[in-house]
């Protein structure tokens, strides 16, 4: 019994210690962003600079673009930082966000194993490259998570002319039945693997299985050059205009969600497009490679 009491006291002390930590800082906002901004290492450089300049701290929730936008639509976060232009425009039009600020861009690339079983090395037409992968039956790893990259991948598959498989699910939302569909190549059997995970995970998956995948350049370079054990994947297709990947930041509309910290979110967005923020983005390099190109002030040094 004595032992039991002592145990209880220790447990009590521990619990008190945990809960009394508290949240001291008050200039904290929540941001939902895509996994690529975090996995590329950009935020690790950007956020400390932001704090130095403005005192704002950001709680980062890295998800697929679909989920990040959803967070904004539910008022769970104060600002979103994503890459799916059409969906971002819709987000603002429907009143969930105040304004989209173009921040930066990079591009998508098709990467794959050194041996290049599909023979797509040096191709500039992304759709043709995907078609060759499909026809040769080489393993292709798809994000499959409704992210910006996945959205882009589905668009590209549709332009290849390969018959597409449409998978539709019926869900009920706000009392109405709603169809959600995803596209993937037909007859994809064992070569098309949809894993439903973030960019970094998808790259390591492709690396493990020595397969092709569509990746954003930022994450790829960071995983290729920024790690002790580099990825065993090469870039095979780049430069297609359809592979452009613009990023935007949107503060969540306080008219829709009065509890969001709009002032701080707006200040953050303004900082990102200011010469200071743009120059941090421009100068972020991983082993000599620039990962993101500023869009608000393209010529910044």
């Amino acid at each position: 019994m004595k032992k039991f009491c002592i145990g209880l006291v220790i447990l009590g002390c521990l619990m008190f210690g945990i809960t009394s930590g508290g949240f001291a800082a008050d200039k904290v906002i929540k941001m939902s962003t895509t996994t690529s901004t975090l996995a590329s290492g950009l935020l690790d450089i950007l956020l400390p600079e932001l704090k130095k300049d403005t005192g704002i701290e950001i709680k980062v929730l890295a998800k697929g673009t679909g989920a990040a936008i959803r967070d904004g639509m539910d008022g769970n976060v104060d600002v979103i930082f994503v890459h799916a232009l059409e969906r971002e425009k819709e987000f603002v039009e429907k009143g969930y966000g105040t304004k989209r600020y173009a921040v930066m861009h990079n591009d998508f690339i098709v990467v794959g194993p050194k041996e290049d079983p599909a023979g797509i090395k040096g191709m500039t037409d992304a759709a043709e490259a995907l078609k060759k992968i499909a026809l040769s039956g080489s393993t292709f790893i798809s994000r499959g998570d409704d992210s910006g990259t996945h959205t882009k991948e589905q668009e590209l598959w549709e332009t290849t002319g390969i018959p597409m498989n449409k998978e539709t699910r019926t869900i009920v939302l706000e009392g109405k039945e709603l169809k959600v569909s995803f596209f993937s190549p037909q007859d994809s059997g064992r070569w098309y693997v949809s894993i439903g995970q973030g960019m970094g995970k998808t790259l390591t998956f492709a690396d493990e299985k020595q397969a092709y995948t569509l990746a954003d350049r930022g994450t790829y370079v960071n995983y290729k050059l920024g790690r002790a054990v580099p990825l065993d994947l090469e870039i095979f297709c780049e430069g297609d205009s359809r592979l452009a990947n613009p990023y935007g930041v949107i503060p969540v509309n306080p008219k829709k969600f009065p509890h969001v910290r709009y002032d701080l979110a707006e200040q953050f967005a303004q900082w990102l497009i200011s010469p200071r923020g743009q120059s941090v983005i421009k100068n972020y390099q991983v082993l000599g490679q620039t990962l993101f190109f500023p869009d608000a002030i393209p010529g910044i040094k």
């Binding site: 998800k63 679909g66 989920a67 869900i171």
Partner: peptide
């Protein structure tokens, strides 16, 4: 699958 649907923001599913 649930973790994925959560990540996608498809909470209903």
């Amino acid at each position: 699958a649930m973790a994925l649907e959560y990540d996608k923001g498809e909470f209903v599913l």
